[in-house]
Amino acid sequence: MAAVAETTTTVRPERRRPSFGRVMAWTVMIAIVLITLVPFYWILRTALSSNPGLNAQPADPLPVDLTLGGFERALGLQSTEEAVAQGGAGGGLKFWRYLLNSVLVSTLITACQIFFSAMAAYAFARLRWRGRDTVFALFLAGLMVPTIFTLLPNFVLIKELGLVDNLLGIALPTMFMTPFAVFFLRQFFMNVPKEVEEAALLDGAGKVRIFFRVLLPMASTPVMTLAVLTYITSWNDYFWPLMVSYSDSSRVLTVALAMFRAQTPQSGIDWSGLMAATLIAALPMLVLFGFFARRIVSSISFTGLK
């Protein structure tokens, strides 16, 4: 791709003629987009098909034998006989219940974790106290411990607290803080000009008031970004809820979905129902993403630790 040499210095990059390389590059880009998106379409196509239809025409690009049966099974709207007749397992899956559980757990984790982390971040960034740097270094060291390592001992602790099979038990370990959230928000608070605070102090506001009335509102953008990401992470978590929940009362969508996949009826996996359930489980995050896509996409970068 030989570029045209410029004789005059222009600020704007000049338009280049589409070269072979550029065409190739676009082809690759389009292929990547297809690989990314086709599975999403395939979920929808399968969810709207009937199981016998899927067996008969596995390669049809459109829904075979268009039906909402899959969604009805996933949401438990069909009777057992009906479900079995259509290739379902007939096991009572209460997706509304799991959806509610997922919403409750994710909301609890997100709201508490970010609020408490913001408080701690403010203390680290703006308050003066003995041992501050040491404690902060300790928090940062917490980043080094893989989550997976704390799962087993945390399970033992949750069991000792009598919170196994309880939504609070699922939320508790990540409800108070994550080292990342504290670090992330501290970075923001440290960059707020001191003058903002000093002006408020002169007006006679206390530091508590400054935090709630001045700094927290100023931090709404990073807080929202962090909140969306925390929500997605807790919504998608599987390993920890799998350890802690044993019955419908505390089962979240990811765990329920894996269970749905495991209960294979005699006629083979109920693909139509399974894909409908998958879509239901994934939809809230897709909607959330629809609202926040631009913000999330542009905020993914390094925390600038160097």
Partner: peptide
């Protein structure tokens, strides 16, 4: 550089606003 993080999904996310030297 804080290299390792527990939830790998968490560490690298940073709002542009927060990117600044400590």
């Amino acid at each position: 550089t804080v290299a390792s993080s527990s939830p790998p999904s968490r560490l690298p996310l940073g709002a542009a606003e927060a990117v600044a030297p400590v």
